[in-house]
Amino acid sequence: MLSVKDLHAEIDGKEILRGVNLEVKPGEVHAIMGPNGSGKSTLSMVLAGNPAYSVTSGEVNFMGKDLLEMTPDVRSHEGLFLGFQYPVEIPGVSMVNFMRAAVNAKRKYFGESPMGATDFLKLMREKRAIVELDNKLASRSVNEGFSGGEKKRNEIFQMAVLEPKLAILDETDSGLDVDALRIVAEGVNKLRTPENSAIVITHYQRLLDYIKPDVIHVLYKGRIVYTGGPELALEIEEKGYDWIKADIDSQDAIKGEA
């Protein structure tokens, strides 16, 4: 489904990703962990196509197509979804208009006519229920005046509407209390199918108690330095990242000397 090969990317001339390799197969859930500043959010932004970041080398293949050639909206149509760590507030654009524009843009891409009002409202109602999102938020501006938990639930709601093949959830657990975390995680689980995949970026084991990953990666200094099964998350929870950092730093030092 997703194949990332030796991906290098920078922002403002500073290299953040230094050769990321990642393979995600249909139905898999991958977790990406790593200390602050390791490049986790950058990876998600680059995959979603944020123009602020520039890819300097490497390849990304998504569903058999060159992902890096696509604009962010086309990536969305092709089935990529990014759940933002910090969902953006858009004053003056109502949730309803925002979602209608999103839904109809996708339909247009696939040569379908815009969705009728009744069907659209029904769709909204159904999908809101998945994350227990209050109906009142629909008439508000996008994310404006939403609590931290509502913003994150709103991300999962949007994901539910857009039905992506691959969802990248960037620290969806940050800023959530236990109840909100459960609702968000259950929402993600309800949307799982044998075909679609997810990349869950998180700092904590906590989220992974709810969303069971198949593979766990540790990103450090812009590269994936460890890959393992679910037990890796428990080890990190227990011992922190220092042992990984020390290991990689010493390897780098040896390389430097050589």
């Binding site: 196509g49 602020a52 933002f84 843009a105």
Partner: peptide, 17 residues
């Protein structure tokens, strides 16, 4: 960018903003 990640074209997003 946020709007475009939801599939809204740049042109449409600019218009809405």
């Amino acid at each position: 960018f946020y709007m475009m990640t939801r599939g809204i074209s740049e042109e449409q997003a600019r218009l809405m903003l």
